[in-house]
Design a protein around this nucleic acid. Structure first.
Lengths: 142, 142
DNA sequence: TATTAATTAGACAAAAAAATCTGATTTAAA
DNA sequence: TTTAAATCAGATTTTTTTGTCTAATTAATA
């Protein structure tokens, strides 16, 4: 059981965080990133591709190619990364999956979950740059 | 992507909530419960068995057998149900899965996530009886 | 221009989670 | 005592998620 987002989303966030700590246009290839994150190269490559597809990363093909941030880290929120990989359903729907749950027809934890959902979205509003500031020199120890 | 607990845990909660709205020792069989929750009978049966195994439900075998709460609804917290089915790792570990994440070596969202984890556990401290009070006559519309 | 090293797309495989089946046992009631 | 209807345990199947492979394309550089 993953916590709040899938393993792929977890990796996506870590990969983007890694790139955010580097020079803006510097290219890092899937192999380098996979070593950094200690995951299989082809799995990293696949996830990076999804991020390119959604515009969060850019890529350079061919020899000495690789990946780099698609826009300034100040403009990339965690939420966008999660949205690109998992979607945001988890953060907008009823925690029990009751389709009719709403303010008018609340499930038993509707109010509490509504507050928590807000806090979760607030947490996900952090940008990659902000994360970087909090992470400098720590990524290795994590 | 499930939100905070698995689909099985969702079903477990709904099934226990259903039983909580009935007479304490009244038996309801897997078929009845599966119809109520609109899920396959055998899937319901399997989940009920897990709940029996963990002591949250009791069962009566044989003809006109079925399931009923293993203890008073006032003494059954949501948390126990989730724990029985999914475990509680999700509510105690780092949201990014960083194994070393701690107060001393916080990940970038450690503080925010710590608060949210507390709120989640608080939400799960609700008892089945409390949920019932908030749900009476609503379970059909949900 | 040939070689090498990278992304890309899509098919494929493996593992995990969700769902189903089967056969044994239990028990109420005909 | 026989039958019908239920739980139970464990194996099996299906679906989803995770992870791998291969062939095509791209581009730097020798």
């Amino acid at each position: 059981m993953t916590v709040i987002f899938s393993k792929k989303a977890e990796i996506a966030i870590k990969a983007m965080l890694f790139l955010a700590t580097k020079e803006p246009e510097a290219c890092y290839d899937a192999g380098t990133i996979s070593k950094e994150l200690q995951i299989p190269k082809m799995f990293a490559a696949k996830i990076m591709q999804e991020l390119v597809y959604s515009g969060l990363l850019n890529s350079k093909k061919g020899k000495s190619g690789g990946f780099f941030l698609g826009k300034n880290g100040h403009d990339i929120k965690l939420e966008e990364i999660v949205k690109a990989i998992d979607g945001l359903d988890a953060f907008t729907s009823c925690v029990f999956g009751f389709p009719q749950c709403s303010d008018e027809h609340p499930c038993p934890v509707h109010d509490k979950w509504s507050v928590i959902k807000g806090d979760l979205l607030n947490m996900l509003s952090m940008t990659i740059s902000e994360m970087k500031e909090k992470t400098i020199d720590k990524i290795d120890s994590l």
